[in-house]
Amino acid sequence: MKKIAVVLSGCGHLDGSEITESVSLLIALHQAGADVSCFAPDIEIPVMNHIEGKPQTEKRRLLVEAARIARGNIQSLDQLQVKDFDALAFPGGYGAAKNLSNWAEKGAKCDVNPDVKRVILEFHSASKPIGACCIAPVLLARVLGDKKVTVTIGEDPETAAEIKKTGAQHEDCPVDDYITDREGKIVTTPAYMYDDAKPNEVFKGIFGLAHELVEWA
């Protein structure tokens, strides 16, 4: 059984992992026969009001928030060791651009959380596949851009232009499909980068990504 590590960035599309994407990824990986373990950085993060779309004054622990999606079965990201897993995956949600990195603020010049950067580099160096959904492919572009990896975030020209500044390549992709970089062992899908996407369309793209990831692993 292939062992896949999934890295979450919180809980909720405005300040963490997008829930539909995260659940779709977990379901699809299990459907593909994988053994899945969840991880998240144990850091403090700001919180958004998901009804008003406005920031709140309180802060929460990212690991504790991500545990809501993982049903409490989650570990701190600093415990993730590449030798224990066959592949790595990131669901989307704005947390990837705010918590796992500061892409939302700095784009192609962003800083990536040290443990996120570490695991991406270690899995890539070990020739183990990496999957990413929605905005999360920007993490791979920033960390692996010098490797000329190819990713997709859909058809958003501004984000695609920023990705290209990292040295990575961008390929347009519909919501219900995915892009494979076979040389780099990278698979990505746009998911809710399309604001009008339907949950079934998001799941179809993530389903394809998950099965490709497990097959490569």
Results as ranks from 00 to 15, higher is better:
residue 66 A to P: 05
residue 69 I to W: 01
residue 74 I to C: 08
residue 74 I to Y: 09
residue 78 D to G: 12
residue 78 D to V: 10
residue 81 Q to E: 10
residue 81 Q to W: 05
residue 82 V to C: 11
residue 83 K to I: 10
residue 84 D to H: 05
residue 84 D to F: 03
residue 84 D to Y: 02
residue 86 D to T: 04
residue 87 A to Q: 03
residue 87 A to M: 01
residue 88 L to S: 05
residue 89 A to G: 01
residue 89 A to L: 13
residue 89 A to F: 13
residue 89 A to H: 01
residue 92 G to L: 05
residue 92 G to M: 08
residue 93 G to F: 05
residue 94 Y to T: 01
residue 94 Y to F: 12
residue 98 K to P: 01
residue 98 K to H: 11
residue 98 K to S: 00
residue 99 N to I: 00
residue 101 S to L: 05
residue 101 S to P: 00
residue 104 A to S: 11
residue 105 E to Y: 00
residue 105 E to A: 14
residue 105 E to M: 10
residue 107 G to W: 07
residue 108 A to H: 13
residue 109 K to V: 00
residue 111 D to V: 08
residue 114 P to K: 14
residue 115 D to E: 15
residue 115 D to F: 10
residue 115 D to S: 07
residue 116 V to G: 05
residue 116 V to N: 02
residue 121 L to N: 15
residue 122 E to S: 07
residue 124 H to E: 05
residue 125 S to L: 11
residue 125 S to W: 07
residue 125 S to P: 00
residue 125 S to T: 13
residue 128 K to P: 03
residue 128 K to G: 04
residue 129 P to K: 08
residue 131 G to Q: 04
residue 132 A to M: 13
residue 133 C to H: 07
residue 133 C to F: 05
residue 136 A to H: 08
residue 136 A to E: 09
residue 136 A to Y: 13
residue 137 P to M: 07
residue 138 V to R: 09
residue 138 V to G: 09
residue 138 V to E: 06
residue 141 A to G: 14
residue 143 V to Q: 02
residue 144 L to Q: 09
residue 144 L to W: 04
residue 146 D to Y: 03
residue 146 D to M: 02
residue 146 D to T: 04
residue 148 K to C: 01
residue 149 V to W: 01
residue 149 V to I: 15
residue 150 T to I: 06
residue 150 T to R: 04
residue 150 T to N: 02
residue 150 T to S: 03
residue 152 T to I: 02
residue 152 T to M: 08
residue 155 E to H: 09
residue 156 D to H: 00
residue 157 P to K: 12
residue 157 P to I: 12
residue 158 E to F: 15
residue 158 E to V: 15
residue 158 E to Y: 14
residue 158 E to Q: 14
residue 159 T to P: 12
residue 159 T to I: 13
residue 161 A to M: 12
residue 161 A to H: 14
residue 163 I to H: 13
residue 167 G to H: 05
residue 168 A to S: 10
residue 168 A to E: 07
residue 169 Q to N: 14
residue 170 H to Q: 11
residue 170 H to F: 06
residue 171 E to V: 11
residue 173 C to Q: 06
residue 176 D to S: 06
residue 177 D to H: 07
residue 179 I to T: 09
